[in-house]
């Protein structure tokens, strides 16, 4: 990988990050815009969770990680501390992969 590519990627990534902050800081927020903005993180996080557990390279793929997510989610729902959610999800997934 060339230095040009590394710096292009770094510049592009930073452009997105800073661009979002600058755009939000310079736009006068309306009620509707605020609703969109406050919904963006939940929507994208939900999409990210789906992609991280179900995307098997362009096909939907249910596996050990999916079960790990569900068990971890259940633990979170029942008020388990954050550390436990991570450990339980990883542990269940690892155990299923060992089987």
């Amino acid at each position: 990988m060339s230095w040009v590519m590394i710096f292009s990627l770094a510049g592009g990534c930073y452009f997105f990050k800073l661009g979002g902050l600058v755009a939000a800081n310079t736009t006068r927020p309306t009620l509707r815009l605020n609703r969109v903005l406050s919904g963006l993180t939940p929507a994208v996080l939900a999409g990210l969770i789906v992609v991280q557990t179900l995307d098997g390279g362009g096909t939907l793929n249910v596996g050990a990680g999916t079960v790990g997510l569900l068990v971890g989610g259940l633990a979170a729902r029942r008020g388990a501390p954050f550390a436990w959610v991570l450990v339980v999800a990883a542990g269940v997934t690892a155990a299923l992969r060992l089987l």
Binding site: Q52, G65, G72, G73, A76, F82, V85, A89, A90
Partner: peptide
């Protein structure tokens, strides 16, 4: 790899 989505779900 499953810890991250579970954490995000929490």
């Amino acid at each position: 790899d499953a810890a991250f989505p579970a954490g995000f779900l929490a």
